[in-house]
Simulated scan of single mutants.
Amino acid sequence: MGIIIKDLTKKYGDQLALNKVSFSIDQGEVVGLLGPNGAGKSTLMKSITNAINPDSGEILVNNSSVRENPIETKKQIGFLQENNPLYMEMFVKEYLQFVMNIHGLKKERVEEVIKMVGLTPERHKKIHQLSKGYKQRVGLAQSILSNPEILILDEPTNGLDPNQILEIRDLIREISKDKTIILSTHIMQEVEALCSRVILLNKGEIVADQPIEEFKGQYKSLEEAFQALTK
């Protein structure tokens, strides 16, 4: 159970975004997906969620093929995109009810998730009225609303101030207790705080895949490992 990727390849015209990428993530693992801009991280995450179709290769989510069973596998995944697309003119609770209706969930789940992510004081505000930190909470709320087994989080603390970063990080840590998580971020402290393993992409290929403790044994820091492996 978990995620299995086999020989995943994707091209955009002449640009090779992913080149026969293979790895597996066990159920309950929290994995940091690292790499410089243009390394193929977003293409990989969108392929797992079936937002885009790879040219070749196979993706299994809990032993089910993403290509052959797209609806079944999507139901098992929550996705927070980097730009956190939200309907800004909707009220917080209204938006989450909208997402709930898409998933066919019971309305009680909305109240449960609002409380879980600390949105109770803001629940009757329009999303455009929220601070960026609270907007990220709304994005996280929609990603966990269906209680998915797998969470894919793309730059969840991007643009937040230090206090907001710590709040969102604590929230992710709480959520991760019973989920498989892929966390893509450029903040190395975030990876060290939340992840047990790192997959490092560069130019569409995996250049490292190992537990964080092994990185620490080979390099002074994750920053040094990142620089050495992605020059």
Rank of each mutant, 00 (worst) to 15 (best):
D161K: 12
T157C: 14
I212R: 02
Q142R: 11
I144L: 10
G159S: 12
V21E: 08
E94P: 09
N19W: 08
D178S: 14
I59L: 15
A228S: 14
T43H: 04
E89A: 02
I52L: 15
G104F: 07
T9F: 01
S42L: 01
F91I: 10
L96W: 00
Q210T: 10
L200M: 15
V66W: 02
P162V: 11
K231H: 15
S131L: 07
E167S: 13
G118W: 04
K93T: 07
Y134K: 07
K46T: 04
N62W: 02
Q15C: 04
I127L: 12
L222F: 12
N147E: 06
E205N: 10
V113W: 00
Q210F: 12
S221P: 11
A208W: 07
N69P: 00
T180E: 11
E205C: 11
R137C: 07
S22K: 05
G13C: 12
Q97S: 06
Q76A: 10
A141F: 00
L200Q: 08
Q142H: 10
I102V: 14
T120R: 07
L60M: 14
K115F: 02
S42K: 06
M116K: 13
Q227M: 14
K20Q: 15
E72W: 02
L119D: 05
R197A: 05
T9N: 05
E214D: 09
K125R: 15
L18T: 04
L33H: 09
I114W: 01
V92D: 04
Q76L: 13
R67N: 11
F226V: 10
